[in-house]
Structures are given as C-alpha cells and as structure tokens.
Design a protein around this nucleic acid. Structure first.
Lengths: 134, 134
DNA sequence: AATGAATGATACTATATTAGTATCATTTGT
DNA sequence: ACAAATGATACTAATATAGTATCATTCATT
C-alpha cells in the first residue's frame, strides 16, 4: 500500500527542483538527469502539471517547463488529487453494493476519523514547506 | 487507494460478530448470511485467522469458528499485517533501485511523519474498542 | 528555409495488487 | 452412512499502478 504513488512523487520532486530554478526554463531531459526518473513518465507528469496550470511550457528548441504557481500555494494534496484522484481509507462497497451497515459501522467511523487527520496533515504540506524543512 | 483492504475489513467484521457470540461456534455459512460477504473469500479469511491463532475451528458437521483471543488484544493493525503485510506510505524505489536521495529527501521525511501518526492511531484500535464505541 | 530539440496528445503494454472462485481431501455430529 | 463443516491449495478476474511508444506540432538557431 502506498499513500503517495510514483506519479505524485515524481511530480513533487520535479516541482521542488523547478522551484529552486526561479523561473528558468527547464526541459524534461534536464529534469530526467536531475531526478533519475524514467523520461517518458516524467514527460507525462509534466504535461499534466501544465494542463493543470501549475507549470507553463514552452515548445520548440530550448523549450521546457517553468513553475508559475507559487510554491506556497501548491499542496501535496493537490498533486495527489491530480494523479491519484480521491482516496478513501476504506471501501464500503461489497460487490458494487454499498454495505448495508454503513450508517452504524464502527470500523468505518474509526477509520474515517484517522483519514480526516491524515487529510488535515496533508493539507499543510506545500512545495514551499518541502523546500524549507530539509 | 485503500488503507484497509477487503480481506482486513471482512476479518474485522467477522471478529466483531464472533466477539458478540461469546464463545459460540459459528459456521462460515452463518457468518456469510450475517455479513453479506462472498462466502469463499470469507472462508479464506477465517481459515487464515485460525492459523494465526485468533480463532479456533471445529471441523465436521456443526463445526465452525470460535474466537479465542480477547477482543481487547486484537488490534486492527494485526489484521492489516496479516492480510496486507507491511505498508509504507511512500515507495522510495525507482526501477528497483533505492532512490539516491533517501537520506535527504524532505518529501520522505514529511510523509513518514504522517505515516507514524497513522500507525500510532491504528495501534489503539482493538476489536473491543470497535465493539464499544458505535 | 532547413534542422533539431523540444512539447502536446494519445494510445498502448507490463506489472503488481486486490478480489474472488473452485476443488478435493478430511473431519465429525447425527 | 451421510451431510455439513473446515483445511489446503491452486486458480482466475478485475483493477490500479507503472512505464513505453508514436507522431504531429512548435520554434530557436543556423
């Protein structure tokens, strides 16, 4: 089980690097060398971040990506939403039918509480924070 | 993403039910009706719980399962270990090689902190607790 | 204007995990 | 003897994750 999947991880690492470049245009090949991440998947991730408005891209020779959103405004949670969709710690469907006991289920209640705590924590983590605290 | 998979969930629900039966022998077919969980997978789960020493089984006609471990001594975390193995919120391997930056990686550090909190929470959840607090 | 280095879009394959099924031997109360 | 149960084990299906491939388009450089 991973809370953070590879794509989210790669995205965060790429953004961390770009944030340090202060607006410089960085190509996916440079990032590839820097991060040691498989190029094709890195490209896919960068393209997605562009579509999401976190990066802007410059096509053509000497093109690449630049960070446009402020590091303090990019939350790890956002990246998780983008690359992993919504998550829930417990799946209350059995054979595509919502479990009959959802309303009273104590397991659900307890796990949900933990989930909410995690979400709260994740919502404090920004790229900026990840840069500062080493 | 699920923190708790189906098998763990089914196990917990079965144990909750058994705990309420105070030592009565309950067959997998009764449990199946009770929980609405696919029988074959429920059987697999129960057999595993027996091997793990949480249940004892009685073979033959009118056989079934009985809880032997105290509800207060069965942690949700144990069930997760049994059915899901060890988990980690972040996978630091890229192409089967440990990421070169593990030591300094700030993402890892932050995520690990959250993971530890979750583990701490999970370690407080027992079947007994799940019975009491509805 | 030609070239090469870059991204955009998109479809595809591979791998791993989770979920669920099937089968047959063995046991045991009635 | 029989039916109802578990033990052991192997298998299939579905889903999610990870990674690859291809081709069109753009554009700085020459």
């Amino acid at each position: 089980m991973s809370l953070i999947t590879k794509e989210t991880d790669y995205a965060a690492r790429a953004l961390l690097f770009l944030a340090k470049q202060k607006g410089r245009v960085v190509s996916s090949s440079e990032l590839d060398k820097e991060l040691g991440v498989p190029r094709p998947i890195l490209r896919k991730v960068l393209q997605r971040l562009q579509r999401e408005g976190i990066l802007i891209s410059q096509k053509g020779n000497r093109g690449g990506f630049t960070l446009v959103k402020e590091p303090k405004d990019i939350f790890l949670m956002d990246l998780m939403k983008i690359f992993q969709g919504n998550f829930s710690f417990l799946n209350c469907f059995v054979r595509d039918k919502l479990c009959a006991n959802v309303k009273t289920c104590s397991i659900r209640k307890h796990v949900y509480k933990i989930e909410q705590k995690v979400v709260r924590e994740l919502k404090t983590l920004t790229i900026q924070k990840l840069m500062r605290e080493n």
